[in-house]
Design a protein around this nucleic acid. Sequence first.
DNA 1: AAATTTATGTACCGATAGGTATTAAATTAA
DNA 2: TTAATTTAATACCTATCGGTACATAAATTT
Lengths: 207, 207
Amino acid sequence: MSTVTQTPCVGRPRAFDTDDALEKALEVFWRKGYEGTSLTDLTQAMGINKPSLYAAFGNKEQLFLKAIELYEQRPCAFFYPALEQKTAYQVVESMLMGAASSFVDKSHPQGCLIVQGALACSEAGQAIKDTLISRRRDGEIALCERLQRAKDQGDLPVNADPLLLSRYIGTVLQGMAVQATNGICPQELRKVAELVLANFPRNHALS
Amino acid sequence: MSTVTQTPCVGRPRAFDTDDALEKALEVFWRKGYEGTSLTDLTQAMGINKPSLYAAFGNKEQLFLKAIELYEQRPCAFFYPALEQKTAYQVVESMLMGAASSFVDKSHPQGCLIVQGALACSEAGQAIKDTLISRRRDGEIALCERLQRAKDQGDLPVNADPLLLSRYIGTVLQGMAVQATNGICPQELRKVAELVLANFPRNHALS
DNA sequence: AAATTTATGTACCGATAGGTATTAAATTAA
DNA sequence: TTAATTTAATACCTATCGGTACATAAATTT
């Protein structure tokens, strides 16, 4: 690990753990979105004051960027790992089921930070909004490439359209994130995911 | 119509048209969300100053509520009218195709105000967030009732689950709204809608 | 022990947030 | 013509926004 907590050798030692503080910041951003989160919200949740925050993380925008990095590695860690499943069906199954558990997990805010972090915002948040759009697109591109590979290997019907399928799954995942913020209960969200799966094309011979 | 522009008989006449002003406000809220929109954004777009806004619409929150009412009657007017289609399939087809055109229509902001108006926000916006959640839920409930009626009339397979189907279609619609903010092009969004339709259960004997 | 370096805490910065008091202007009713 | 009524425009209110200056505290280096 590169970001292991290594106390700098000189000067007064930091009185807080940056990883813990980042995790607290992530939770606030997740719940309130980028612009809905104030510096006061952050410092209170992180248990530090503003100069410490700025010294450790730069500014609000850079802190948010670090938060979404942590987000994609930690609680929402169902997406990219799912790509490594053996079959296209299992990839999509892993994604949909992962989303169905993560988005409504009561141990953290509901929904998906990448979707609700800055879906609509003022000019001041445009850069963050664009960053989140890119993250969503990147996910779909990665899924598309995975499905294309599956098709090339005969793991999807010859008439399957990887680009369309990845857009469709991306749409469902983003919709599930909204459903989670609506307060849908876990079982219901899971049933939606299962319905999508039931219609997903597969070569029974291979799976 | 109840809100027809009727000049009050006494006092200085209003120098702006409230319907026009509301339409301008709607567009700003649509683009920037409830909390991302400032009073200055609103007054500039509406061409009026703050006291006029407050006299005519109450405050920012009430103005937003009037904006979402207008929104559901005007540009986003594909949802509830779709319920009156003859068959369940046609209802869903009308909704999905309506969304596929409305959400990416270049004559107004991309996406759906009911989804992106306040998906995540500060405590100050909680009431608006809850209102939008209710609107989303109400739409799904109405669709569910319509599909149940269809099932009762033999217009859906006997094993069809109206509640699950309405949640699924709601999820897809909300996901399509996010896709629209991502900047997906109209044809691609339409193809997603068509894919969903292709898997929607129907009794061919009836449609 | 002194000098250096880094972090903490308080207090503050200009800008902007939503909202309003007040006065002038424009209309109708008397 | 005057009084009553409503709107318009400016200026202002308090609170909070993101961000920082500055003095103090705590560690290491010399």
